Amino acid sequence: MFDLSPADLAGPVLDCCAGGASFAAETPNVLAVDPSYAVGFDEMARRVRASLPGTDAIIDDHRDAFEWSWYGDPQRRLEIRSRAREMFLEDLRDNPSHYVAGALPNLPLAAKSVDLALCSHLLFTWSDQLDEQWHRAALAELVRVTRREVRIFPLVVQGTGEPVEFLDRLRAELPPSELRDVPYRFQRGARQMLVIDARR
């Protein structure tokens, strides 16, 4: 969903907040950060395995807000996500150093400690629950820990696909940024990521 190239992944990458995603398990140089990692492996496994029905309920409640060109159909999406979940749990068990407990807007990372920071399905998409001031602090923190670039996706409200009222206002306060098209398609209207130049 972030349209990543091999060059993008050449240096250290932050996945925040990563949850039960398999990105760190599949990709070298990735550090996954999420507050839920503090609960330990057994509880994390229970939570991740119980979470799929809850996220599918959001889709069921807003069926018109999603398209299926990427996944094919709901069953195929469930299969992909189930495999990713088990891959994540295997890596969490075998390589716990890939996973750090922490949360925005206060990450347990040194300044400029990663080349690229990725944040999916947290900032902006939960703007109906996390307010503008929280987003301002979270964006500043992602820029603080990143040497090169911050990428955030999606930029519409979860479920409804509505635009985020304060996106442009926060962009005006950030280092130079752009809205860049991504190939990933699922939630209608979610066709762009925010790319922030963190080098300044």
Rank of each mutant, 00 (worst) to 15 (best):
P105Q: 07
D3L: 02
L104S: 12
S5W: 06
G19R: 00
E79C: 11
R93I: 10
P74N: 06
L122S: 15
L92E: 11
A10P: 11
V114G: 03
E79Y: 08
A45W: 05
L89V: 13
G11I: 10
V100N: 10
Y99T: 06
N29Q: 05
A38I: 10
K112W: 04
L104R: 11
L109N: 07
S22P: 02
A7E: 15
F88G: 06
R85N: 14
V33M: 04
R85F: 12
D61Y: 00
P108C: 14
V13I: 09
R76M: 10
V48K: 06
L123M: 11
W70K: 03
H121K: 10
R49Y: 04
S113A: 09
K112R: 15
F41M: 09
V30I: 02
D73T: 01
A21R: 08
L107I: 09
A45V: 12
P96G: 11
D61S: 14
E43H: 09
R77F: 13
R47L: 13
L14M: 00
P96T: 11
A110C: 12
T55P: 00
A84P: 07
R49T: 03
L118G: 07
R47T: 05
N106R: 15
L122M: 15
A21L: 03
F2M: 10
N106Q: 15
S97T: 15
W68P: 08
A84R: 14
V114A: 02
L116F: 03
R81A: 12
N29F: 00
G102R: 04
V114K: 00
G40Y: 03
V48M: 08
I59T: 11
A110V: 07
L31S: 05
C119K: 08
A111C: 13
D73H: 06
E90V: 13
V39R: 14
H62N: 14
N95V: 07
V48C: 10
Y37Q: 11
D91H: 11
H62S: 01
L78Y: 13
P12K: 08
G72E: 06
A38S: 14
R46F: 08
D61H: 07
D42G: 02
R46N: 13
A103K: 06
P28G: 01
P35H: 08
D15A: 03
G102F: 02
L122R: 11
D8M: 01
G19W: 00
H62A: 04
F2E: 09
S69H: 05
G54I: 00
P6C: 01
L118Y: 03
D64C: 02
L31W: 05
R77E: 12
S5K: 14
F66L: 10
L9A: 05
F66W: 13
L116T: 04
D61F: 02
A24G: 01
L107F: 02
G40A: 09
A21W: 00
L4C: 13
A45C: 13
G40T: 05
A101W: 13
C119Q: 13
G19N: 01
M87E: 15
A18E: 01
D60W: 02
P35D: 12
L52S: 09
P74L: 01
E43W: 00
V33H: 02
D60R: 12
D73L: 04
A18C: 07
P28D: 00
A25T: 04
P35L: 06
N95Q: 13
Y71H: 15
A110M: 10
T27A: 01
E90Q: 15
L123G: 06
L92M: 15
S36L: 03
Q75T: 12
